[in-house]
Design a binder for these strands. Structure first.
Lengths: 194, 194
DNA sequence: CCCAGAAAGCTATGGGTCGTAGCTTTAAAG
DNA sequence: CTTTAAAGCTACGACCCATAGCTTTCTGGG
């Protein structure tokens, strides 16, 4: 089935991800991946359509991994606890892989079913965690967006070194989490006043 | 003083910014800027050290513009009002220029005095708005980080089309703002319990 | 056991970009 | 009018992407 039993698409993505993790997304090049694979550059096109396709596969992988990480972190927890776990998992993933931030803010191209599904999976985890709060649908969407935005923004800024000051970043994140959790509580209040 | 009285560095940055606004940061190329300037590509190097330098100048410009926008939005307002105005200004700027998001999450290179100053200017505006809350220094830093992270994250996701669902994004942002404002109130509470 | 045939690799090539070197032109200043 | 420095140019080398077309290797059917 495979002559030379060499590369596979997922192996190529693995190598590409190494490069991205080391030097950032702009450092990714077909030539470098080929070099790591021990193969001439054009050979890569047997496993990947082009550089854009490779980037998309990376995004897909990252989003899927994030969905897994979030799911794992939330299992066995509930309410504020689960929300905090989600936030920590998101931040931890981006601390381990600072250069993957951009992959998590890509909007799935219309017609890209795989990436759409993966993105949807992430949202589903958050939705599930928010269910006990009893929001109506619209409010749940708003809450999800706020959670994601705040945590993604924080982790992204941290990953790109945006917090110059010496104050402990972990403490700042604790503040953010309590803000968000109390914000959800308050949203619940409003829900009851309806 | 200037033969041909043609280009200047700021003019080059203007053109580069046009390209970024139209096609995103990765669409920026020395060749395209030169074409718009009506000049051969190598001529640009008389006004800009290289592509990296041009990118840095763009970031600088964007951060400065943002600082201005925030300052303007906050003048004449106080407390929760001022915070809301800040958030709106930040989001509005990125709605007008969606492709400038990345420029606002660059960490100033050690030794880049200009960019450091500009970044610092943004933080100063937020600090000033937070002053009436009476936080101690550390808490003010945490609060600033949270505000910036949440708003930047939201605006960034919105700019990159990350909110797929049909629910009104403006409403979501209102929710975020109340979360943040109430979060600041609660932080003040804790401050008093000290 | 052998021999298609497909998958995976290769070399060669064209087009695009960045950036440097070195020359020419222009305009400002004396 | 002359000098001079800034601003422009052409030529070039290095790197990258992507395609075309050939060669090798493995696999599976007869």
């Amino acid at each position: 089935m495979s002559p030379r039993a060499g590369l596979t698409t997922t192996a190529v993505v693995d190598l590409a991800l190494e490069i991205v993790d080391e030097g950032g997304p702009n450092d990714l090049t077909i030539a470098k991946v080929a070099e790591r694979a021990g193969v001439a550059a054009p050979s890569l096109y047997k496993h990947v359509k082009n550089l854009g396709d490779l980037r998309r596969l990376i995004d897909l992988r990252v989003v899927q991994e994030m969905a897994d990480a979030l799911r794992t972190s939330a299992t066995g927890r509930q309410g504020a606890d689960a929300v905090a776990a989600l936030a920590d998992a998101y931040r931890d993933y981006l601390r381990k892989h600072p250069h993957r931030t951009a992959a998590l803010s890509t909007d799935p191209d219309r017609g890209d079913a795989e990436l759409s599904t993966a993105t949807h999976a992430v949202a589903e985890v958050v939705f599930a965690v928010l269910r006990p709060y009893g929001f109506d649908h619209a409010r749940a969407v708003h809450a999800t967006r706020c959670l994601r935005a705040a945590v993604h923004g924080f982790a992204g800024l941290e990953a790109s070194g945006g917090f110059g000051r010496p104050e402990d970043v972990g403490e700042s994140f604790e503040v953010l989490k309590t803000m968000l959790i109390q914000g959800l509580e308050n949203l619940t209040q409003k829900e009851k006043e309806r």
